[in-house]
Amino acid sequence: MKVERKIRVLVAKPGLDSHDRGAKVVARALRDGGMEVIYTGLRQTPEQIVSAALQEDVDVLALSILSGAHLTLVPAVTQLMKERGLDDVLVLAGGVIPEEDLQILEEHGVAGIFGPGTPTGEIIEYIKGKLAERAGA
């Protein structure tokens, strides 16, 4: 019988931002949705986040930013991921991110961006769908 590996997700808070309500709610919802969730806690540098992603061998990295510093922090994280060969990790971003920035983040390798009011079920479906798509490809 094939034992299915649980989807492993790292929920991370980069930068000095302290708004963790969304990150915690999402972390708990993903866990309730059957995933293995690691939450970094607040104020992680891109270096710490990428190291954690590597160490924990995650399938998904979910970055939560509500401080407006996403255009600095997200590219810093994805750049490091590339350097460490973490190209196969699905990167998501959530928080307060103006629409006009969505494309910039996508260009930096963010697959999905979830703003305020997103139902957690939608994020779970998205992750499962994307990972299945990649596994099938």
Binding site: G15, L16, D17, T72, L73
Partner: peptide
């Protein structure tokens, strides 16, 4: 408690 020129302040100075 970090000054604007601290390494951890990158990208956050004057933002919030």
């Amino acid at each position: 408690g970090y000054d604007s020129d601290h390494p951890l302040s990158v990208g956050e100075v004057g933002v919030c």
